[in-house]
Design a protein around this nucleic acid. Structure first.
Ligand SMILES: [Mn+2]
Ligand SMILES: [Mn+2]
Ligand SMILES: [Zn+2]
Ligand SMILES: [Zn+2]
Lengths: 135, 135
DNA sequence: TTATAAAGGAAAAAAATTATCCTTAACGAA
DNA sequence: TTCGTTAAGGATAATTTTTTTCCTTTATAA
């Protein structure tokens, strides 16, 4: 369990209870949509406004405390920022799972051929997870 | 210039003038957002409804004549379906460009480690394109 | 041709996101 | 601790995006 008060301040954001609550849920869930996050955070802060949630997500995205993950046929998900990593997305249970594979070779291939100034590699594999294959 | 009447029928969709118009623009543009597509298609079909455009995009996505590309900090883009390929996304000019790199090694790595049943590899590199680096 | 089922268009409705405006709370400086 | 400033919260409205409805028009096959 991380100290979100400090992390927020390190990212030049005030450490409000609502923000700490949002981050705690996100740490626990890993990857979450606005919709799910709102229904979760309302349990702790029944009066929280959806506008507050959106404003906070934007603020934390801007200050690089969060990142967003966009996948085909799925709502945007958010996660607490960490090193650039790939994801597995199950089309059946609609869960996102982290995948730690090495990008370097891939990135080098891009750089040498295209002259592109690379900032981020966005990689998500869509398919069916093991659990859902059994069903 | 492709024959979209036939392509539509092959995908079990009626070959309407509006759909052919949409596909012609998409062939020309490569990757396009709903917003841009709507402003373009209205030049050819001034009375076309935005609802018609959405309905057609969904129908063509469902019947695998189109695919959608989702990128961070960018609106969803659409393209005419082809082999699964990667993209470069320029954060400055916001253009998407096709990138033909080989996925096989990457895909194999996923399959052997995770037991995941892979359907599609979603790969987009974000950064600054050569043209925009000069500016 | 003609029948029929799908698609188009206008409008309304719903869903998602953002803006406004006043109140409340965080936090640094006394 | 208290205080003053400023950012953030909350309610609400507004805006934007997407979907639905319902009637008319059109594509297609018989
Ligand atoms: Mn992740
Ligand atoms: Mn492409
Ligand atoms: Zn699954
Ligand atoms: Zn560019």
């Amino acid at each position: 369990m991380m100290n979100y008060e400090n992390i927020l301040r390190e990212h030049n954001l005030k450490a409000t209870n609502q923000r700490v609550g949002i981050l705690s849920i996100m740490e626990q869930k890993g990857h979450i949509s606005i919709e799910d996050l709102y229904s979760k955070i309302k349990l702790d802060f029944p009066s929280i406004s959806l506008a507050t949630l959106y404003k906070n997500m934007h603020a934390m995205l801007k200050n690089e405390l969060l990142t967003e993950i966009k996948v085909e046929n799925s709502k945007t998900h958010f996660e607490i920022a960490s090193n650039n990593h790939a994801h597995l997305y199950c089309e059946k249970c609609r869960e996102l799972v982290d995948l730690d594979i090495e990008f370097k070779k891939l990135n080098n291939e891009i750089l040498k051929d295209s002259g592109f100034l690379l900032n981020k590699t966005n990689l998500t594999f869509s398919g069916i997870c093991i659990a859902c294959q059994g069903v």
